[in-house]
């Protein structure tokens, strides 16, 4: 055992992502969103991805605008504190820059779908969304009757991502990852995925993790790459490390109203920036606060 999993972000994206795969990302909802990973996906021009997540703030909007996405399996796509996601709207309404497919969920059903995947169950029965149009729009759910009490239930089938991406405060070299703060559906997503990539604010000695193993979100056995990448979640927050950069989200919202505006934003903050260190240098001195 040793440092075989330790690598750079560029190498992790090059080795463990490919066109057409399904990636669960942004699983803690508004915090701990691995924006650095999404930007590297854009730089390496991954295409035809399926994105899986509950609410990934503008991360999904950026990947859609950059033309990386074929399908979104999610409960919500937009800009949480600013409003609608302009790239998501352009893709769905006008097919710009390309047509995408939406597989609608609620937060609870995407959590249940990943739970089913995590525990090897074919589906999870639930009482949510009965009477909603989401099950019909989604197309993969089935309505049924509980054999135990005769009540109506909705069956949510398992979702099995090819890859889950987790950002956290600390992990050891094997990828035992500890996330402080809300987990959202991170654990279910990581356990449902075939492979997991971990972005840690700090990679720490094994003993710092194994002294409190119940804080570990996912065992290193699922993890194929461990990347130490400080501020990987900016502009989303990482508890105890840095707060949310609200104004960055609002600037993004204003800048991306048009396709040209988004393309300029993307060139400025992603494609003309070689890596996260250069992105952080560009943010200085306003960030970190």
């Amino acid at each position: 055992m040793g440092t075989a999993k330790r690598t750079t972000l560029a190498d992790a994206v090059a080795r463990f992502t490919r066109d057409g795969m399904s990636i669960a990302i942004g699983l803690a909802l508004e915090p701990a969103i691995p924006f650095a990973f999404a930007h590297e996906l854009i730089r390496q021009r991954r295409r035809d991805l399926e994105l899986i997540g509950p609410i990934s703030d503008v991360l999904f909007d950026q990947l859609i605008g950059a033309g990386c996405v074929r399908r979104v399996t999610a409960a919500w796509v937009g800009n949480v504190s600013a409003g609608l996601g302009h790239c998501y709207r352009r893709a769905l309404e006008q097919g710009v820059p390309r047509r995408i497919e939406v597989r609608d969920h609620s937060n609870f059903t995407i959590a249940q779908a990943l739970l089913a995947g995590a525990i090897g169950a074919p589906f999870i029965p639930t009482r949510t969304l009965l009477g909603s149009d989401i099950p019909r729009a989604n197309g993969t759910f089935r309505e049924s009757v509980s054999p135990f009490d005769g009540t109506t239930v909705l069956l949510v089938p398992a979702v099995l991502p090819d890859l889950a991406v987790i950002a956290c405060q600390r992990a050891d070299e094997e990828g035992n990852a500890q996330l402080v703060g809300p987990w959202g559906i991170s654990r279910e997503g990581a356990l449902a995925a075939r492979e997991v990539v971990v972005l840690a604010e700090r990679v720490v000695p094994r003993r710092e993790i194994s002294s409190a193993p119940n804080l570990t979100l996912v065992p290193g056995t699922k993890v194929v790459a461990v990347v130490e990448e400080p501020f990987a979640c900016h502009p989303s927050p990482l508890q105890g490390a840095y707060p949310r950069d609200h104004e960055f989200f609002h600037e993004y919202h204003r800048a991306t109203r048009t396709r040209e505006g988004f393309d300029a934003w993307l060139a400025d903050w992603v494609t003309a920036v070689p890596d996260r260190a250069a992105y952080l240098a560009k943010l200085a001195p306003r960030w970190p606060p």
Partner: peptide, 27 residues
């Protein structure tokens, strides 16, 4: 909160979606 007009996969206005809203409304 899903979409207005047109078909689901090609709406006139794409809205963000449920989030947890549909779960709260259901339960």
């Amino acid at each position: 909160t899903t979409a207005i007009g047109g078909e689901r996969q090609r709406p006139a206005v794409a809205l963000p979606g449920s989030g947890g809203g549909a779960d709260i409304a259901s339960l």
